[in-house]
Amino acid sequence: MIEVKNVSKTYVTGAGSFDALKEVSFTIHDGEFVAIMGPSGSGKSTLMHILGALDVPTNGTYVLDGKDVSTLSEDELADIRREHIGFVFQSFNLLPRASVIRNVTLPLVYKQIPKEQREKIATASLKSAGLDEQYFYHLSNQLSGGQIQRVAIARALVNQPSLILADEPTGNLDSHTGQIVLETFQKLNREEKRTIILITHESDVAEHADRIIFIRDGAIESDKPV
């Protein structure tokens, strides 16, 4: 479960301070599929960084699975990311010149899981993400965009995270493959009860979720089911 209470983020720059988030509060229950939507500059990326334990809020609390994440140190945040969060990025961020399996097992390397076990878990994740088995040992730069994003989704699933954060996952894909990727998320949510947060600026992408939190100028404008 995710509880965000009065979270603010202020960036101090040479030109003065800037409030990216202002007193944002919401709760997301396990098994929900939520889209966080907003135009660029709305603060949705800042919110994603805090939800993904990549950054901490200036004020307010962020509680993930009963643990307050908002005051942790850099290395403790790394622990949270390793154990609880799976990321899917707009630009995929796969290791080039590495096989699909290697890319997917990478988070497990940092969890110090032995090699044979890693491959088993990765194979299961790749199947959940819907990648055809014949591509498992291909190099990641030999795949198409849709296939690459499936590998990235499998990588996000592999550590059994309590939360999958997808940051503009269809941004670099054509509408057809984007549709397939979004359906994959829906399937994971319905069949495997995964908690998924989708960050996007497109309403037709956000509509694939069950609930949309709309952000503008660092504050929640609306929060309602689709």
């Binding site: 993904g52 990549l54 850099e74 290395d75 790394a78 622990d79 990311r81 390793r82 154990e83 990321f87 990025f89 630009s91 961020n93 290791l95 990478l106 988070p107 940092y110 969890k111 990588r155 550590n159």
Partner: peptide, 16 residues
């Protein structure tokens, strides 16, 4: 740099 960012995002610590 991007690879380092990814490794950190999936839970690699500073020391690692």
């Amino acid at each position: 740099t991007k690879e380092i960012g990814l490794r950190k995002a999936i839970g690699a610590k500073r020391k690692e």
